Amino acid sequence: MNGTNPASLPAMVYIVGAGPGDPDLLTVKAQKLLTQADVILFADSLVPRQMLGGVRPDAEIIRTANRTLEDILPIMIDRVKNGRSVVRLHSGDPTLYGAVYEQMRRLAEAGVDFEIVPGISAFQDAAAKLKVELTVPELVQTIILTRISGRATSVPSREELAGLAAHQASLCLYLSARHVEKAQEQLIAHYPPETRVAICYRLGWPDEKIRVVPLEKMAQVTREEDLIRTTLYIISPALGTEATARSGLYNPEHSHLFRKSK
Rank of each mutant, 00 (worst) to 15 (best):
D113Y: 06
L134C: 07
N82C: 03
S176C: 12
F123C: 03
Q186P: 00
Q50F: 06
G248S: 04
A59H: 08
K129E: 07
A152W: 09
R147D: 05
E109S: 13
P94H: 02
A7P: 15
L26G: 12
D44E: 12
A245H: 05
I148Q: 11
K262N: 10
G3Q: 09
H256I: 07
T146P: 09
A189Y: 02
L130G: 06
G19N: 09
E138M: 13
T146V: 09
V180K: 06
E216D: 12
V112L: 06
A177S: 11
E242G: 08
D93E: 04
V132E: 02
K131V: 00
F42W: 01
G98I: 15
E208P: 15
R106W: 03
V136I: 14
A219S: 13
L26F: 03
E133P: 01
L41Y: 02
C172D: 06
P74I: 14
T231L: 08
S170L: 02
P137R: 11
R79Y: 01
P57K: 15
E216T: 13
Y191A: 02
L161M: 04
I143D: 02
L9V: 11
Q36V: 06
N251F: 05
R229D: 15
F258I: 05
D113M: 14
N2A: 07
L232N: 06
P6G: 11
E160R: 08
A99W: 07
G248C: 05
T135S: 09
V47L: 03
T27F: 06
L161E: 01
R223Q: 12
L96I: 15
M1F: 01
I199G: 01
R79M: 06
H167C: 09
E208I: 08
I234H: 02
E70V: 08
G98C: 13
E242D: 04
F258E: 07
P10W: 01
K81R: 15
D226C: 13
K131F: 01
I62F: 00
E185T: 07
E216N: 13
P214Y: 00
S85G: 13
A238N: 09
T230H: 07
A37F: 02
M51Y: 00
H254I: 02
K32L: 15
G150L: 10
G119P: 10
C200S: 05
G98L: 14
T241N: 09
L69N: 11
V112E: 01
A11R: 05
P20L: 02
I72R: 10
L134R: 09
V197A: 02
R79D: 03
K81M: 09
L33M: 09
L9A: 13
Y101I: 06
L107G: 09
E181R: 13
A198W: 00
I116V: 15
A152R: 15
R229I: 15
V213S: 01
C172F: 03
I75S: 03
P214R: 00
Y97T: 11
S236I: 08
T153Y: 08
L107Y: 05
L175G: 12
A59P: 14
T142M: 09
E138T: 12
I228W: 02
R84F: 04
Q220V: 12
